[in-house]
């Protein structure tokens, strides 16, 4: 076999093109994006829902025994379901829906945490600017931040002599430490380059704070605020054991004193839900403020 025979075997003539078939135009599926969104929602909601049902079932079975001290979920629903269904009823000055109570507590948290946020960020900014101050203050903050909210109560009462401001102080003092510590860490982490830019432009202290420090440290500041808002909501029960009145924290204390366990469980659900929303809210604000770099 030589080269010429090999070549002859190759068929190099172009084959006729395949017939062109006209396809019907595709109708655009206008519902597609909605279907996609619906599926995403199901993916997000279904797993926690299943887990919730399983947990409630275990609770139902576990608490069904004769001598059980805990009400079953069904019993809770029978006893206190109306607290879920009507969050905003008003039957008297002390007998109001849990929605109102949560709002009253949120007002306290708003003052306490708001104060902690402002004071915490400013203090953190000042301390973070100086290595010496950082060395001096940081160990003390690290110790103070571990003190539980309840432990501040007596001191707070002694200092303020009045339950209203004392409650706000307890929330404040619980929430402020992570805000200070994180802000200071964020300020320390500002790259020298940004400081040089500020120096060349001769930014003054106030301009430096708003234009460089706050945006540069925003991711740190907002993770501090997020921890802080969680802690201040944790402190609400402790704070309201002291003030009495209409808050959700006091409601639990009051329900315990009159043995209404079902009410307490409903209140726990309210507190948990509210805390979750607060956490997400601060996280969301952080994302908006720092344009996607924070939390």
């Amino acid at each position: 076999m030589n080269v010429t025979t090999l070549k002859r075997k190759l068929d190099l003539t172009p084959k006729p093109a395949a017939p062109v078939v006209a396809l019907p135009p595709r109708t655009p599926d206008r519902l597609a994006p909605w279907r996609k969104r619906g599926r995403a929602l199901v993916d997000a909601v279904l797993p926690p829902l299943v887990v919730l049902v399983v947990l409630l079932t275990i609770w139902q079975v576990g608490a069904s025994g004769e001598g059980s001290g805990l009400p079953t979920p069904v019993q809770v629903w029978i006893d206190s379901g109306f607290l879920f269904m009507e969050p905003f009823y008003v039957y008297g000055t002390q007998d109001i829906g849990l929605g109102w109570r949560v709002l009253t507590s949120l007002e306290r948290v708003f003052y306490g945490f708001g104060l902690a946020a402002v004071v915490g960020v400013l203090t953190g900014a000042v301390i973070g600017q100086s290595a010496l101050m950082m060395r001096g203050f940081d160990p003390i903050f690290q110790i103070l931040r571990t003190v539980p909210p309840l432990a501040w109560l007596p001191i707070s009462l002694a200092a303020f002599m009045d339950s209203g401001p004392s409650a706000i102080f307890v929330i404040f003092i619980t929430a402020i430490w992570p805000v200070i510590i994180n802000t200071a860490a964020g300020v320390r982490a500002i790259p020298q380059d940004y400081r040089n830019v500020a120096a060349v432009l001769r930014l003054n202290q106030v301009e430096f704070f708003w234009k460089i420090m706050v945006p540069a440290a925003a991711p740190y500041i907002f993770s501090g605020l997020r921890i802080g808002v969680g802690l201040s909501w944790l402190a609400i029960v402790a704070a309201e054991m002291l003030t009495g009145g209409v808050g959700i924290g006091f409601f639990i204390w009051d329900a315990w004193n009159s043995s209404r366990l079902s009410d307490i469980i409903v209140a726990l659900a309210y507190i948990g839900g509210t805390g979750f929303i607060l956490d997400r809210l601060v996280g969301w604000i952080g994302r908006v403020v720092s344009r996607g770099t924070a939390v």
């Binding site: 380059d193 940004y194 040089n196 830019v197 925003a218």
Partner: peptide, 8 residues
Amino acid sequence: QNHSLLPW
């Protein structure tokens, strides 16, 4: 050297 533009 490393531009030092403010990223935000």
